[in-house]
Design a protein around this nucleic acid. Sequence first.
RNA 1: GAUUCGUUAGCUCAGCUGGUAGAGCAUCUGCCUUUUAAGCAGAGGGUCCCGAGUUCGAGCCUCGGACGAAUCACCA
Length: 573
Amino acid sequence: MQLSEQEQIRRSALQELNKLGINAYPPEQYPVNVLASDVSKNFQSNEEAYQDVCLAGRIMSRRIMGAASFLELMDSSGRIQLYFKRDEICPAEDKTLYNTVFKRLLDIGDIIGVKGFVFVTKMGEITVHVKEFTILTKSLRPLPIVKEKDGEVYDAFTDPDQRYRQRYVDLIVNDGVKDTFVKRAQVIRSMRNFLNDKGYLEVETPILQSIPGGAAAKPFVTHHNALNMPLYLRIANELYLKRLIVGGYDGVFEFAKDFRNEGMSRFHNPEFTQMEIYVAYKDYFWMMKMTENMIEKIALDLHGTTEVQVGDNIINFKAPYRRLSILDAIKEFTGYDVSKMGVDELLDVCKKLDIETDPSMGVGKLIDEIFGEKCEGSFIQPTFITDYPVEMSPLCKRHRENPELTERFELMVNGKELANAYSELNDPIDQRARFEEQMDLAAKGDDEAMVIDQDFLRAIEYGMPPTSGMGIGIDRLVMLMTNQSSIQEVLFFPQMRPEAVKKVITSADFVDMGVSADWAEIMIPAGFTSPDVLKKTKPSAIQQKLNGYRKKNKLDIPAIQMEDINNWLAIIN
RNA sequence: GAUUCGUUAGCUCAGCUGGUAGAGCAUCUGCCUUUUAAGCAGAGGGUCCCGAGUUCGAGCCUCGGACGAAUCACCA
């Protein structure tokens, strides 16, 4: 492995520590008794309590001034300044611990523990005066340290690719990243508490499913060896939760990782989290109330107010939310009353509105398309869009007043769908017919049409009480609540293309080719990163390049001869 | 999948009309006892994403490719 100079420096520092009898990875626990944020928050109101503190964390900056030094220590709670004084670290004659271990062998990024007392510097900064320190972990890679002065940020670690691939570094050096994920946990906790308080049962249902049902999406396929059959990662858990309602629970919910084999964007990750809930004897009107109350509570728990800044908008999550049918929404934004239109008229409207269509689209799809193009983005404040066409919603009960529509709502916030809910279809005859329509769509080439799930039909043939169900995108909710504009910011490890693995060659490989040990060390730095490179280079050029490198670096080894090179090439070929 | 932009030192980024690869920070050495991205003096550090081509000469121009980002389309 080719190490950068800084990595080599850190490794040799590690060796020196070992020589001094210091274990840079000690096994025993370290008796931390306070967090950095506690010290900076509470020291001035109770100085006595901080005369004997013990902290541990990562060194984030160092300012060494002869026999005194300042450094910044970061623990899970935040940062605090440390003050080191040589004659206190090393009261006796031997100053090795300060001069060598502290000044030379420690680096930014190392994890240390310190014991001492808290005081305030002349600059007014609350600081730990260190009497004793312990190396807890030596860091072998340099951290990209972000610095800040007068509100300006220097050397920011901002490349999204690197931030997501090396989230651990992002968490260390970028302020606020940790906090986003703390807030994510708070959102989930708040929602879970809300649902538990209502007495609903949190359940777990299969992720590996033999029929990927409950939504219109392409699944990931895998294979079960023992059963020798394909299995799918779930695209939704809806059909399983409904089986549990059939089984007699009044309310069930699940925080579910779902998987969809579709495009990625700042709103889409192949695996994402939904909370789905089903409650017996309720309808979608009831569910609207529950949804808005739940979201209002989450906003209050998180921010202490229902008003949340999202991008340029302030979104008010205070219930109740506006309700608007999809047909009224279209009328409001386009002026067209599409409620009684057939396919031909709708195609005409789409043409006038400059919306792309294709011949496979039916009434429902066309209405959905118009809404998506012309309306959806306009609903910034939370709005329930209701009563979608029946073709779009094969699992949803028909509308009590109009059988062409369904009792469905989607909650729009900041121009995006956040939640989706139905009065669930519990008529097994109608459900079977709707599945068959989906089969027809599949036969026409719709690869997202739902597959018929016979066991689910069997379940609701036993009788599922009237039920309302709702699914809410947790990632999107967290994006709203933390003012993040991409889903990657609210997932610790968003999906990414794997890093390209470079084929690693070592000097030993050159030795195997008959290159002497001295020269083998030089091959890679001289630019011969694989035997292939050698093969493609003219022998005379190899000689020039290697001897050129030898001369430039004043290497004390014999120059390479044409004969040697020809011998290597003979072995390769 | 389409379009646009990007890839240069550990990090952030310059690099003119094609002419010996640069800065700041980080690193290393020295000085410095309360500093504030500390300061001062010095040093080392590069597969200019990869591969072809044009050229006396390519970080720069042309073509191909890889990777990434943004926007758009499907989807939560």
